[in-house]
């Protein structure tokens, strides 16, 4: 039985001035699915994620989240964003708050959850990302891998329906990449719906249900990782894979 559709995009177009960055993007992501987005620099991967979280506003097309079509001018985008978690390449933790305050911030001030309840939930999330001992530390004292795990916990604290990751390990020293990928795998196993922009082909192979290859603002090929990585049907996909593998 197929899962319900979590994210659906139809004929999405996005331009910055004269620069046409996303061209007629169609995509469907089902509940519990992990989708990896790959493609060369400048192909529009980040812009696509940012459109899904409404940090960028599309020019045309339709976006459905959890079966509901989202209209920028009629929906409360703050509410939508709370349902769509986002993890950034450069973490963007709040440096003036401790780790646990970072995680509690949005639940307390957006969802208005009582502080002690938010605290308990934040503790659980910290345990989940393996950082229980860092609750009262400021982000400046953490390694990159630890920062990214806190950022994941902070995002999870809003209990999002889908999580977007924009190159979550690209800013990390190689020896710190593993701990973040482990955390993400765990999330995937728990059934979180995830869209991940990544250069980690190993992760994509192991965890993704499908891989999307983007080139120059278009989706060139979509497939199961075994198929897409080994027998790409498009020449451009093959050329890209040859260049990165």
């Amino acid at each position: 039985m197929k899962e319900a559709i979590m994210v659906k995009v139809e004929k999405l177009n996005k331009s910055f001035g004269d620069l046409h960055v996303l061209k007629d993007i169609d995509m469907t992501v089902r509940e519990r699915e992990v989708v990896c987005l790959i493609g060369a620099s400048g192909s529009g991967k980040s812009t696509l994620l940012r459109c899904l979280n409404f940090l960028e506003i599309k020019n045309s097309g339709k976006i459905f989240i959890g079966g509901e079509q989202i209209e920028e001018h009629t929906h409360d985008l703050n509410q939508i964003r709370a349902k769509v978690g986002m993890v950034f390449q450069h973490f963007h933790l709040f440096p003036h708050m401790t780790v646990i305050e970072n995680i509690m911030e949005a639940p307390v001030h957006v969802k208005k959850i009582p502080k002690d309840q938010a605290y308990e939930e934040a503790k659980e999330l910290l345990a989940k990302v393996g950082l229980s001992d860092k609750a009262n530390v400021y982000p400046g004292k953490l390694s990159g891998g630890q920062k990214q795990r806190v950022a994941i916990a902070r995002s999870l604290a809003m209990k999002p329906e889908v999580m977007l990751f924009d190159e979550p390990t690209s800013a990390l020293d190689p020896e710190l990449v593993g701990e973040v990928l482990v955390t993400m795998k765990k999330l995937a196993q728990e059934g979180m719906t995830m869209i991940v922009v990544t250069h980690e082909m190993g992760f994509a192979r192991e965890v993704a249900d499908s891989v999307i290859y983007m080139h120059d603002g278009r989706i060139v090929e979509v497939g199961h990782p075994d198929q897409l990585f080994h027998t790409p049907t498009q020449k451009r996909t093959k050329d890209f894979l040859d260049s990165v593998l």
Binding site: L55, N78, F88, E105, H109
Partner: peptide, 24 residues
């Protein structure tokens, strides 16, 4: 990125200014 992080968590622009940007 601080504003983007706040917004991505569902915080409004004014709340993000008040809680995240202005204290820093």
């Amino acid at each position: 990125g601080q504003m983007e992080a706040g917004r991505s968590l569902g915080m409004s622009v004014s709340l993000t200014y008040r809680r995240i940007i202005l204290p820093q």
